[in-house]
Design a protein around this nucleic acid. Sequence first.
DNA 1: GTCTAAACGTTTAGACCTGAACATACCAGG
DNA 2: CCTGGTATGTTCAGGTCTAAACGTTTAGAC
Lengths: 165, 165
Amino acid sequence: MSTTAAEIAAAWRRERPGTPTDSIEVFTPIVRLAKLLTDDRTRVLRAAGIDRATLDLLSVLRRAGPPYTLTTRELTERTLVTAGAISQRLARAEQEGLVTRAPDPSGHKAVAVTLTAAGHEVIERSVDAVLGRDSELVAGLSAEEQDLLIPLLGKLEGFVRARVG
Amino acid sequence: MSTTAAEIAAAWRRERPGTPTDSIEVFTPIVRLAKLLTDDRTRVLRAAGIDRATLDLLSVLRRAGPPYTLTTRELTERTLVTAGAISQRLARAEQEGLVTRAPDPSGHKAVAVTLTAAGHEVIERSVDAVLGRDSELVAGLSAEEQDLLIPLLGKLEGFVRARVG
DNA sequence: GTCTAAACGTTTAGACCTGAACATACCAGG
DNA sequence: CCTGGTATGTTCAGGTCTAAACGTTTAGAC
């Protein structure tokens, strides 16, 4: 049993008239959905012997296409975590032999990160499981509903992104 | 500069034809928005000398109305984190004098958690700041767009919730 | 009364992240 | 040259979470 967003907003208005509750019904389900989805993905991946942070890292490299190389800065830009977190992810992944780090000639002090054969295997083995699972979960909405939802989310993300961080 | 969800899906299809990408344009913005919003809220609250986990805890108690008391189990149900996390949050909040814990006569081994006067002050001081900020951010969508978005998110949340955890 | 199962809460180990401090490499002017 | 500034990465301290193991209390069967 869980409280709905509408109930939360109503409770604030009842307890504190004047509380600005107009955002609650939009943001509460978004934050909850994200938590449900990421926790579920963590569990799916644990069964495959990998963690979510590492999967994100390997996915970005895999999607880049051959030669599966990006600098640390590029990884940071594509990942929505801090440079410190990327550095730690890289240390773990390198330790496990999934990526290599080497000086990159271009740019200031760039480090070129490259997927190893082992890293490639890991991502091939897990990406279908993860995205297949997500496919099941998104099927709660019809294609028409998804087509309605996607542009709204895109617009909201753009607006929020311009005003934070 | 960040990759759009559509670009991510296209990259997977290009690199791995057959990859099930239909969920990406829905779930990627949801997960990103949640991260942008929670990180931003963390920063807003740090300025007020409180952390997000504690605010969530105090909010649930405050919304319950007088006498601002709930059991640990009720807090867990309303919070989407594990019982262990609630236990740790309570220990921190109790340490800071924001809540009290006492045996609850009803139920098995229930612990009654109650907001103190200090906890009440903290929540009164920060809730308008947090929800006011969220109000600014949700204004990226018109009222009509929000009315379109809310039921879609609700339907999706219900579907996902029934299939995870 | 006694026993057993279920409900409830806490502790602990292991992961991950942020933000700030720090270290290093390149570049452009003087 | 050489020197400050900018771009990059890394390290570290502090904080939070999950999941699993554990301890405790209550209710119900008999």
